[in-house]
Computed example of a mutant assay.
Amino acid sequence: MKYPGTIVFDLDGTLVDTAPDLTAALNHALGELGRPPVDPQAVRHMVGHGARKLLERGLAASGTASPALVEAGVPAFLDYYWLHIADGSRPFEGVEAAMDRLAAAGCRLAVCTNKPVALAQGLIGALGWTKRFSAVMGFDSVPLPKPDPGHVWATIEAAGGDVADAAYVGDSMTDVAAARAAGVPVVAVSFGFSDRPAAALGADAVIDHYDALDGVLAGFVR
Results as ranks from 00 to 15, higher is better:
P4Y: 12
T14L: 00
T23Q: 00
A25W: 10
L26I: 13
A29E: 00
L33E: 06
G34Q: 05
R35H: 11
Q41S: 14
R44K: 15
M46K: 08
V47M: 01
R52S: 14
K53N: 13
R57F: 10
R57C: 09
G63A: 04
T64F: 01
T64M: 02
S66K: 03
S66L: 02
A68M: 08
V70M: 10
G73A: 05
A76G: 04
A76W: 14
D79F: 01
I85H: 12
D87C: 09
F92M: 00
M99I: 04
R101D: 14
A103R: 15
A103F: 01
A105D: 04
P116S: 05
Q121M: 13
W129L: 05
S134E: 14
G150Q: 10
W153I: 14
A158E: 05
A158C: 03
G160E: 04
G170I: 01
V176D: 03
A177C: 02
A179V: 13
A179Y: 09
V186I: 12
A188Y: 07
F193Q: 09
R196Q: 15
A199K: 10
G202P: 11
I207E: 09
I207R: 01
D208T: 10
D208N: 12
D208C: 05
H209C: 11
V216H: 00
G219L: 08
V221A: 04
